[in-house]
């Protein structure tokens, strides 16, 4: 049963990924991108990982893709003709794509061992986990906060730098714009606001 679900999710994600680049309307293609995210999260759920796909949904679908959709919806949508562009981009795109596929397969075959009999059917029993039950979340936490804490901190610092950079790029010190200060408004009293005008 879970195997069929895995293949269904994988099929949906491949079809949706193809639709992302072939659909004409950019809003539709962002929504298909969301479908890719969701179905790949479903694939991870079937493989009994719970934490990673949920954070994936919260961060990518709940925040990043929303902002994406925001920007695309604001744009003036133009229906571009695809026929000429396709052959113009095919050398560069094909090169990058084939390099990417080669790299992925190279890394996967070196770093993961696939069970001999069938893929995706785990026919070995992990006896350690039957005695000492550690959930997905606990295992991740135990690794992340002990052996790999330095990478965790570095990731945090990189995010902080990116945030500061975004603020610096968008913040404009403009003297002419008058801001409303709620504290100043609330602390205004009759004594400081009402006075007699004398010549």
């Amino acid at each position: 049963m879970p195997n069929y679900l895995f293949y269904i999710f994988a099929g949906i994600s491949i079809i949706a990924a193809l639709m992302v680049i072939t659909v004409v309307n950019p809003v539709h293609s962002v929504l298909f991108l969301v479908l890719v995210f969701l179905s790949s999260a479903g694939m991870l759920f079937v493989l009994q990982l719970e934490f990673i796909p949920l954070t994936f949904i919260i961060v990518y679908v709940g925040a990043i893709a929303i902002l994406f959709l925001f920007v695309v919806m604001m744009l003036d949508i133009k229906v571009t003709s695809k026929s000429n562009d396709f052959f113009k981009y095919i050398p560069v795109g094909g090169l990058v794509g084939s390099l990417f596929i080669f790299e992925i397969f190279n890394t996967l075959s070196k770093s993961f061992v696939i069970p001999k009999s069938t893929m995706l059917v785990d026919n070995f029993v992990s006896w350690v986990s039957t005695v000492d039950k550690v959930t997905n979340l606990e295992a991740l936490g135990q690794l992340l906060y002990t052996y790999y804490f330095i990478y965790f901190l570095i990731a945090g610092i990189i995010l902080l730098v990116a945030m500061v950079g975004a603020i610096v790029l968008t913040l404009q010190f403009n003297k002419t714009v008058k801001n409303q200060l709620i504290f100043r408004q609330l602390s205004r009293s009759a004594d400081s606001a009402v006075f007699l005008a004398r010549n």
């Binding site: 719970e50 934490f51 949920l54 919260i58 679908v61 709940g62 959930t135 997905n136 979340l137």
Partner: peptide, 10 residues
């Protein structure tokens, strides 16, 4: 499920 609150948040 063991990540129920995250599921609700998602």
């Amino acid at each position: 499920i063991n990540v129920g609150i995250l599921y609700l948040f998602a």
